[in-house]
Design a protein around this nucleic acid. Structure first.
Length: 573
RNA sequence: CGGGGUAUAGCGCAGUCUGGUAGCGCAUCUGCUUUGGGAGCAGAGGGUCGUUGGUUCGAAUCCAGCUGCCCCGACCA
């Protein structure tokens, strides 16, 4: 390819409406352009990278025994009503009607469609296990699209679905996908971690996420310093530090007319924040005989909403009581709540439950108790893991302490179990001739997001530094002084054609520009290897070869350049 | 969904307060020169000032509505 024939409108300055580095660089490098909020057009250079990601994913899925299909992006409402998700999904599901006023949606995922296919086409356990995948455009009407293609409304996703007759089979399919994902992210050259995850609204039992580590990530990833234990903060188990000390203080009531927050309480009464708890009121589930429950966590901790929602006594979705509801159920307003004389069930976080001599609201406006001790001043609470992990927490496996870093979620593997097969009656005859409901797994990879995630991890102040596996071209050639010395251009073209004949993708920058802007553009778009052909070096029969991330170029003889590149480690790293 | 910002040439911006000929830099086009890190000279093209309505002799500018886009927040008492 020649730059003179390629549409790649590079920008010298950062576009004003971009905030993360990958978004800025994708715009500046002419990879994408925004069409509307959360919608993008991929230009030739960006599409080349996208296709590289797709191809690696495709090869590894095929190698793992999955088969590629392609399902419709538009899906009939009936299937979603059958699974129950037509009601369950909020405005994120873009619904539309056809000319006959029939309801459809733009697919945010394809569990329903694939389950429908399988229940029609697969009748016997002998046809299983089966794993089908597609690389398709998805649409989710995100509340707030941002960060370019990292959180867009339309995006390309690889989604795979496995079908087995037994839980053991499902587990084996899941493990195979896990291995395939590791190979994919290895080949993509990304620094990633597989972490335990909450299975969330999609449902199911086991679930792991793959995260690319980057400061701009939207998720907090918790690691143990001493083992492989890693989890999304939503799922990271927190244990209490030691056991509860004996009470040393007596209970006393303190007037707190203006102290409505933990911060104010700590500030005005010189109380250590670890000696306070906060009490959060939320709707109770139908499993218990109360309208609301009180969740108690230590003052310096934050509630983990996923853990709270997963608690059997808490209503799903997690709904905090309104101020009016707080008053009617507790007899006091927010800011004066606590576990003493609490009229509703109390669930305390593990750490809050081992705190002694603590302060909390008195359930009477303008009053707090200090020196509270569980069991003595109020009933022993039900104890649960309710809070978000913080740096330095003890890892639950005893291996060390927790560290927290940011991650971009690029993959997610789920063991779905029978959630969809049950709802949609997807069964086969098993070896005993009986109807058996299928066990499913589902496995996603955010293809477009990976492009952004790779840039977040691989860039410098001049632009993108692609790993060899993702680079839109392997090599670029910049001829200098060709207008004075026609040999330069001839040699450049000859090197290009020879490398192309050897199977490499080569970009020849033949634009009629000075060397400065051409070097800058080649750096910006991140081609791993650069050959400079100039009259100066040709005099001694040489050209220059430089890797994108190295400071100095090396001289290579004109005869040896093609072989040097073909043997270069850089093409494989 | 709540709050804030913003909308003027392809991109970045000034002009708006104080109403009166639509401007700057980069980019683009033509010609000549120029080729080792974002060139020089000369010339040229390009804007219903987001949109609708109002005030006015006159609106990019004042007023009102609508829309797009961006940012922050979204129940932790």
């Amino acid at each position: 390819m020649r730059t003179s024939q390629l549409l790649f409108p590079t920008l010298r300055e950062d576009p004003v409406d971009s905030v993360v580095i990958s978004h800025k660089l994708m715009l500046r490098a002419g990879m994408i352009r925004q069409l509307a909020s959360g919608l993008y057009t991929w230009l030739p250079l960006g599409l080349r990278v996208l296709r590289k990601v797709e191809q690696i994913v495709r090869e590894e899925m095929d190698r793992a025994g999955a088969q590629e299909v392609l399902m419709s992006g538009v899906q009939p409402a009936e299937l979603w009503q059958e699974s129950g998700r037509w009601q369950q999904f909020g405005p994120e599901l873009l619904r539309l009607q056809d000319r006959h006023a029939r309801d459809f949606c733009l697919g945010p995922t394809h569990e329903e469609v694939i389950t429908d296919l399988i229940r029609r086409e697969v009748n016997s356990y002998k046809q299983l296990p089966l794993n089908l995948y597609q690389i398709q455009t998805k649409f989710r009407d995100e509340v707030r699209p941002r960060f370019g293609v990292m959180r867009s409304r339309e995006f390309i996703m690889k989604d795979a679905y496995s079908f087995d007759v037994s839980p053991e089979g499902m587990k084996a399919s899941y493990d195979a996908m896990y291995q395939a994902y590791c190979r994919i992210f290895d080949r993509l050259g990304l620094d990633y971690r597989a972490v335990l995850a909450d299975s969330g609204a999609i449902g199911g039992s086991g679930s792991q996420e793959f995260h690319v580590l980057a400061e701009s990530g939207e998720d907090d990833i918790v690691f143990s310093t001493g083992s492989d234990l890693a989890a999304n903060i939503e799922k990271a188990e927190c244990i209490a530090r030691g056991s509860r000390p004996e009470p040393t203080e007596s209970l006393r009531e303190v007037e707190t007319p203006t102290q409505k927050t933990i911060e104010a309480l700590v500030r005005d009464f010189d109380l250590p924040i670890e000696k306070t708890v906060k009490t959060l009121i939320c709707r109770a589930s139908e499993a218990i005989d109360a309208a609301f429950v009180a969740l108690v966590i230590r003052g310096d901790h934050t509630l983990n909403e996923v853990k709270a929602e997963n608690h059997p006594a808490v209503a799903t979705p997690l709904t905090f009581a309104t101020e009016t509801e707080v008053r009617s159920s507790m007899g006091a307003g927010p800011g004066s709540l606590g576990p003493i004389d609490c009229p509703i069930p109390v669930i305390a976080d593990r750490e809050a439950a081992v705190t002694a001599d603590f302060g909390a609201g008195a359930n009477r406006d303008g009053w707090h108790y200090f020196g509270i001790n569980w069991g003595r001043d109020c009933p022993e609470p039900e104890v649960a893991d309710l809070r978000n992990a913080v740096e330095g927490d003890l890892a639950p496996d005893g291996s060390g302490t927790y560290q927290i870093r940011r991650g971009i979620e690029v993959g997610h593997v789920f063991q779905l179990g029978q959630k969809y097969s049950d709802a949609m009656d997807a069964t086969v005859l098993d070896e005993h001739g009986k109807q058996a409901t299928l066990f499913m797994g589902c496995y996603g990879i955010g293809v477009t997001r990976i492009v952004a995630a790779a840039i977040e991890q691989r860039h410098d102040d001049r632009g993108i530094c692609w790993p060899a596996s993702l680079a839109p071209f392997d090599v670029c050639i910049v001829p200098i002084g060709g207008n004075k010395n026609p040999i330069v251009d001839q040699e450049a073209i000859d090197i290009k054609e020879t490398l192309e004949a050897r199977g490499l993708e080569v970009l020849l920058d033949d634009r009629n520009l000075g060397p400065g802007p051409r070097f800058a553009d080649m750096d910006l778009i991140g081609i791993p290897l650069r050959i400079v052909v100039s009259g100066k070096t040709l005099e001694s029969g040489e050209v220059e070869l430089k890797h994108r991330t190295e400071g100095e170029a090396q001289r290579v003889s004109r005869e040896a350049i093609v072989d040097t590149i073909m043997e270069s480690e850089w093409l494989r790293s």
